[in-house]
Design a protein around this nucleic acid. Structure first.
Lengths: 239, 239
DNA sequence: GCATATTTGTCCGTATGTATA
DNA sequence: CTATACATACGGACAAATATG
């Protein structure tokens, strides 16, 4: 019964997830299941390395294996699950190389979007302002995962300034994958605290229409963030 | 004990698949089916708007509905099929707005990669040289779809210079989707012919290490290509 | 607008193949 | 090597939605 690996058949988790399954009622069953699992994964409740068993999870959610496999497939293509042939699906553990890849993609995408902006009005920046306020509120309450969530939203909305759905989708996946790495570091405070101020500076540059400088700032910003995360990742690996 | 199980029905569909795609035995059935359909779609055999019936296609491919649906799911997440609830899956027809989005993403990604290159040797450029040769050969033979294929590969290998798997994946999907638009234009020659020379120019700049200038050239290159494709798309819509 | 036929969405039971203890 | 657990794939069934006349 007691196992070294965090297997999904923990009773309390299955019970709580069954509640989620009942609450939603729109779109297809597979997508609703995927929504439930996505939230559990990105919020760190299912840590990297967790194995998702078709049988026990399907029973807990009250859906058949076929439907559950549909949901698995959706999440696997978002990078939130990895699929190994004849072995099953797992919550992925990101390597250092993958972290570097994710950050390189972030820089290319986010800086590219910011640099190519031509005009800006306060209304379009409104979502970014809201995210910044949310981050500040969470920081004041000592809710560091909450700060991380708000920070991710800020960058999602930053990409959204391009008005390009495919870019939005890529950014959404990218940042969701990055959160997997956040959950394995020891101190989320050190990871997120300093970036609230930097986001504010970025927002001011955007409001002033200084897009080239904003892009340059963002580039160093992301390089710093990458270095910090890699350091945290290494100290955790040695521990 | 004796494992002389010569499953006849299994051999049948394995043979039919082997005709279509040199099937790799290390992947699942659904992925092999997806490979077959992906090629049919990107090569224009299944034009945009085509409806994919589960029953008839499953019978034709010799797989069950469940397995076929898995393949549909894979392709839907690549953008090569669209899924409408209770209606089925279709080969998508790209709108003008979607074409613009795809090109904006291309520019951000490809130009970003080229601009961030630091050093280059001839060996790493070898795939690009091969693609260029293939395009020239196809052009000489009047095989314009072949030129289009080689051109797509050239840009795929351009992104691959970053050595980033996630970028490779995005580029692959992006260019596959773009090919959907190529198939609905009247003259593939006008669409592809001029870009062979421009690719050669790009390659020379890369070989000389002039990455900033190469990125700028690529930006105007892609703007021109977008304008041509949009024009062709419009003339086709009115006809 | 209505009734019918077709197609998809979902679930189940089972047989087979694969990986792991 | 054997045994067990699990994923893979198939076919059938029924409900629900859509398309068709």
């Amino acid at each position: 019964m007691t196992e070294v690996v965090a297997v999904v058949s923990s009773d309390q988790w299955l019970a709580s997830i069954a509640q989620d399954a009942e609450s939603l009622d729109r779109s297809s069953t597979a997508e609703r299941i995927a929504d439930v699992l996505r939230r559990r994964i990105t919020e760190g409740e299912l840590p990297p390395g967790t194995r998702m068993s078709e049988a026990s999870l399907g029973a807990a959610l009250g859906v058949s294996r076929n439907t559950l496999r549909e949901a698995f497939r959706l999440l696997a293509h978002e990078g939130l699950l990895v699929h190994q042939l004849h072995r099953g699906v797992f919550v992925p553990e990101l390597s250092e190389a993958e972290l570097r890849d994710l950050y390189q993609l972030r820089r290319t995408l986010e800086c590219g979007v910011v640099r190519s902006l031509s005009a800006m009005d306060d209304e379009r920046l409104q979502p970014l302002v809201a995210d910044l306020d949310a981050a500040r509120a969470a920081a004041g309450a000592g809710d560091w995962p909450g700060v991380g969530t708000a920070n991710m939203r800020f960058h999602e909305h930053l990409v959204a300034l391009a008005g390009n759905r495919r870019m939005d989708e890529i950014a959404r996946r990218l940042l969701a994958e990055l959160r997997l790495a956040f959950h394995v570091v020891a101190s989320p405070r050190a990871l997120h605290e300093s970036y609230v101020a930097r986001n504010r500076g970025l927002l001011e540059l955007l409001r002033g229409g200084e897009f080239a400088r904003a892009a340059d700032d963002l580039d160093t910003y992301l390089h710093d963030s990458e270095a910090e995360l890699l350091t945290a990742h290494r100290t955790r690996s040695t521990a």
